[in-house]
Amino acid sequence: MANPKQNTDDNLLEVKNLKISFKTDEGIITAVDGIDFSVKRGQTLGIVGESGSGKSVSTWSIMRLLPKNSIIDKNSSIKFQRKSGKVVEMTKFKKNGRELRKIRGGEVALIFQEPMSSFSPVYTIGNQIMEAVLHHRDVTKKEAEEIAVDMLDRVGISNPRQRFKQYPYELSGGMRQRAMIAVALSMNPSLLIADEPTTSLDVTIQAQILELMNELQEDLGMSIIFITHNLGVIAQVADEINVMYLGKIVERGTTKDIIHEPKHPYTQALLKAIPRLDRIGERLTAIRGDIPSPLSRPTGCPFYTRCGKVIPGVCDVKMPESTHLSDTHTVYCFLHEEKDV
């Protein structure tokens, strides 16, 4: 999985200049500040970042699932290739319009951290999967039930026929997460957005869910956007990684690029800050200071307030342009600007 496939033109999703702000009592908060990214067919794009990085907001916006007080800048573009081959501009759809609803769930599916809240407590698991299937596919009730049971089986839920009749509260956290994946996949989406899907799970269950997602991706050939703050998880699942900080992408590259040869000071610092088994007992290198409040975003490079290699008078003035270190590896940092290929 770690090897990106070659056909770079075959992008399922292309996001350009995405800028999202929120109107709040305290003023306008810019959560995502002009980012570009793309997802290739059949690949997993990992987005890693800490709180306030805008990693969730940027992806939820693809499905237009942001709260009412959000504003997507009008110069933003989210191009998605539908199953029919047609490329559509997601920002142009009316919120909750018909076409958008069809894409949502049918072609782009979402799983997230808290599996309990994604299910209605008053219907059985089976019922809810069936409903989703019936909504997006032209099948009879009987067939939908078969698809649902089959899906439960595929995500590794034992006794799927019996689980079919159970209510969400009767399942454990891991089971619910599997069931949520079953719902998401029953519509056969071409893009799955997984927002911290394993964060609230125990390690053994997390490992199983990650394995399951890998397997299903190989079987179904879908693309995945995997959002997490956990570098270990991302190293295991992603083909490509975007590192986000305060609403900006600061570095992007293949998983190997990012993990083995991080170039942005933030990426480097993050990798040094996590405790790792190969460095038991070594002192961790913390990143000084706090993540700035989104209300008082630093000017220039968002990381300059905490950066150990800050160039005064440069980093705090303007945002660095992208520097292409190789075909796959891009960094946004003044330290690397002259190395552009």
Binding site: T285, A286, R288, G289
Partner: peptide, 11 residues
């Protein structure tokens, strides 16, 4: 020294 409190305290 690198771990001292952030020198950049926003006003």
């Amino acid at each position: 020294p690198q771990e001292e409190q952030s020198p950049v305290t926003q006003t």
